[in-house]
Design a protein around this nucleic acid. Structure first.
Lengths: 197, 197
DNA sequence: CGGAGGATTGAAAGCAATCAAGCTCAGTGG
DNA sequence: CCACTGAGCTTGATTGCTTTCAATCCTCCG
């Protein structure tokens, strides 16, 4: 029943007719929109439990592809215009849409931070809360996406992401096992960084 | 029936229990969230026809106040959890929520532009399409908000907004009657500016 | 007429982007 | 088994744009 996506495989494109909404079951997907000049804005990452592909005027407003191998379950979204037909799907989609709005607003606050390092810290806190795992007394973040994805999410360059992470490493706030495996040594200082103090 | 708001008057605050959603009938409202350090992020402006105050987990996720004197109509949003009770309100709110997501995504693209002048041009194009008025062969924008509001919407400073507008004025792309009344002399060049060409 | 808030302009400083060069590691093929 | 390759990550030096700080202007309103 779930549909499997290989890394980099597309689920839908911008302005495709939206026949389905998709529930992410495993893996991570990336919702992006393209600038006229070819640059990319990452709008959001979809983690397990997220509902992605909400339509606007019957079409997808972003494109979506897999950051890692992923599984998704498709739900027809024809009935969205008629809440009486399928009230339970309707409620779920409504809740997802309202949550999405709230998440996008949080994303704005992230982009509105002063320094690049504050944005990166805020992003890491987000991942920590969302997909952090316990490792002894510390917590670990498996970063599924690469530096360019993070850069396009935060409106920065990959070089700047790298420099911020290096800075956290030198300050002993985090340690890197490899480029995609981060141990958070000092959560409270990371949260302080995210708030500019 | 409509509720009147004076300039600067608040309609609701962040994390207020969301008992109503509000339809803007006249005037302009401002949806904002605050950073820990007191800085302000303008999430959106609400123009006539917009539905504002959509709840997340039963609470307002932003604060809302009037940019100009405004009128709003309140709609109870208790029934949102039960689509079968009031299908028509439910459909309206669903459509508004999905539109809002799309608008927020457009806002991201605006923030993702390279230069301050591109962001300002994009913002002016948005206003032009939304509230532009014909004036002879030209089109006019009445800017209801001040430079700081625009700055907080675009993640820039008021000075930078001012400089960008001056730049457009010197390039004969726009003319200012006063600080809040802009004549667009060359729409296509303004759109080009917004896209970095 | 005078005051105040917002807008504009100017000069200087700060921070991220850019350009460019190594580095690491996984995958590949000899 | 190891050299080769390429992609992604890191680091360095420089450039350039926005911010910051400050002064002035303007306009509306008391």
């Amino acid at each position: 029943m779930p549909r499997r996506l290989g890394e980099g495989q597309h689920l839908f494109f911008e302005s495709d007719p939206a026949r389905f909404v998709y529930e992410v079951v495993s893996g991570v997907v990336r919702l992006t929109r393209l600038h006229k000049d070819g640059r990319r804005q990452v709008i959001a990452f979809g983690f397990p439990g997220d509902l992605v592909g909400l339509p606007s005027n019957g079409r997808h407003s972003t494109e979506c592809d897999a950051v890692t191998a992923a599984e998704v379950v498709a739900h027809r979204c024809d009935p969205l215009g008629r809440p009486d037909r399928d009230p339970s799907l309707h409620s779920v989609v409504m809740a997802a849409a309202l949550d999405e709005i709230s998440m996008l607003q949080d994303h704005f606050l992230m982009l509105g931070r002063r320094l690049a390092s504050e944005k990166v810290a805020a992003f890491l806190c987000l991942l920590l809360d969302r997909i952090g795992e316990a490792v002894g007394t510390y917590r670990m973040i498996r970063l599924p996406m690469n530096r360019s994805d993070i850069a396009d999410y935060l409106g920065l360059t990959p070089e700047t992401i790298s420099r911020s992470i290096t800075q956290f490493r030198e300050a002993k706030i985090v340690a890197l096992e490899d480029a995609h495996t981060m141990i958070v040594l000092d959560v409270s200082r990371l949260r302080d960084m995210a708030e500019g103090s």
